[in-house]
Design a protein around this nucleic acid. Structure first.
Lengths: 221, 221
DNA sequence: ATTAGTCTGTACTGTACAGTACAGTTGGTT
DNA sequence: AACCAACTGTACTGTACAGTACAGACTAAT
């Protein structure tokens, strides 16, 4: 028998609600769902418990609102196509790593995994907006490259999975299990180029693959 | 002021303790740490709370013991070297996937990530015994291949990361965020061969890389 | 069969916390 | 100034659960 949630009508109300969301986001991301009490949220944003329960009828609803807010305001994966494919891929790779290995994202990630059983829809939503979307972007790009005969790809899905896996997996594990700082911009950039070059080795035509922009002597593996 | 934990002296005691561990493992893996109550554990294994607190002085200590037990009894990653490198890699890849995508492992994984902040040592221990060990195995194999001139590798670390990333990342994400069944043996086998072949494309010498056992016409990408 | 150590059931304590009740205050609108 | 809705503080209820207390029952070895 919970009090129904109410939409704020005044500007003051909208402000209060936003303050609550912000405080809750900070605490949930820092300490997790179970370890964050409603009282702690109220303490952090000022005001009173009654007000909070005016806008969010349960703790679960509040959590939902917090994650919705974060996920829908995150930078969406995107792929800017430049004239040469190596540059396009490296740019995408770097942009993706910057998002995935940002400190806000590390916290979000672990929170979502931790609460997946309690909030399976949230985990699914996150997956759709993040990893899935990024994957799909790459797949459609691969299909285009394949149909234009620029890469020797049989299975665009799989090639996209390989590219992203090489890019992210190793550091992703560290992010999940260890408490290490995010990689530097420099090392992300290095990794991006190495991954893309190895990818082109595997999927390019031996004769001419992407060679327009790829400096042949610089073969560092 | 908790009662100190006691080592079982009798066979009966050792049996009791083992039953408790088993029941706790089942419940922790199924429902997580916070959602598993001591009472539920006691209900499941019979006996009484007092006995449990005789062997484990707190809930945290019990959890620790449970995970220690599971992690140290898990199948360790291993790499059997056959005469040809393609076979060696495919065998390793398949064995690794079978472990990582088993249903027991999915549960363990999510539990460890979820509780990483409460039990950072556990997460680190898991990482060392699982992903780290597997990675190190591949690295030392790569070093050997490099020094024998069988692969064109500059950075053995990185090449190992790429191999494992291609192999695991995509399904790993699904395992973390979605509630999908584990992949079939058949699809794991397919993936293992595709990954290894693409890996050899990227790191083998164009002229002769691993061709002894690699059927050239069967180039499915 | 006695004894010592171990196990069991039940009932209890204390605490943390989600959610509610309510009386009083604030601040914007007319 | 007067009104009303939205806010605030505080105190409360109920519940879930970690950990304790204790009296009695079981088991095994002599």
């Amino acid at each position: 028998m919970t009090t129904p949630a109410v939409k704020p009508k005044s500007a003051r109300g909208r402000n209060r609600r936003a303050k609550i969301l912000k405080a809750a986001a900070d605490l949930f991301l820092d300490h997790g769902y179970g370890e964050t009490s409603i009282d702690a949220i109220v303490d952090r944003c000022g005001g009173s418990k009654a007000t909070l329960y005016n806008y969010f009828s349960t703790k679960e609803e509040l959590f939902h609102a917090v994650i919705d807010d974060i996920v829908s305001n995150r930078q969406k994966p995107d792929l800017d196509i430049s004239e040469d494919l190596r540059t396009t891929l490296i740019t995408f790779a770097l942009q993706r790593m910057k998002v995935v290995f940002s400190s806000q994202h590390r916290q979000l990630l672990r929170l979502i995994v931790a609460e997946r059983d309690r909030f399976p829809q949230i985990a699914a939503m996150y997956y759709e907006h993040g990893p899935k979307r990024s994957h799909d972007l790459v797949v459609s790009y691969m299909e285009r490259l394949k149909s234009r005969g620029l890469l020797e790809i049989d299975n665009p899905e799989e090639s996209a999975e390989f590219l992203i896996g090489m890019l992210l997996h190793h550091w992703y594990l560290a992010q999940l299990y260890l408490q290490t700082p995010p990689p530097s911009e420099r090392s992300m950039r290095d990794r991006a180029t190495h991954v893309v070059d190895r990818f082109l080795d595997a999927f390019g035509f031996p004769e001419d693959a992407g060679l327009k922009a790829r400096p042949a002597p610089k073969k560092t593996r």
